[in-house]
């Protein structure tokens, strides 16, 4: 089991960091759901340990320019754009 069960304060704090507003009902729902999600990880404790393969090191690429996306391609999933920019709400 997780050592620290999720409480309402933890959910509010995480929501705050994520800049998401939650009402009390949401907090209750998410507290329960977070707890559930974390409990799924407990299943990992049941997995038998195996020898790890040798870890990779020094995976790098040469400093050479490759083709990227066009502006249209870059913006195609954005719900709102303006003059080639992604457009979003005010943030401070």
């Amino acid at each position: 089991m997780s050592d620290s069960p999720v409480d309402a304060d933890a959910v509010r704090h995480v929501a705050d960091l994520a800049r998401v507003n939650l009402d009390e009902e949401d907090v209750e729902t998410f507290t329960e759901q977070f707890g559930d999600i974390l409990s799924y990880f407990d299943a990992l404790d049941e997995v038998p340990s195996i020898d790890r393969e040798a870890e990779l090191v020094n995976v790098m690429r040469p400093d050479e320019v490759t083709d990227g996306l066009s502006q249209d391609e870059a913006l195609q999933n954005a719900t709102e754009t303006e003059d080639g920019f992604f457009k979003g709400p005010n943030v401070s």
Binding site: A74, E82, D83, G84, F85, F86, K87, G88, P89, N90, V91, S92
Partner: peptide, 9 residues
Amino acid sequence: TADYTLVNY
């Protein structure tokens, strides 16, 4: 006080 934000990556 801005109305919205434009993002350039």
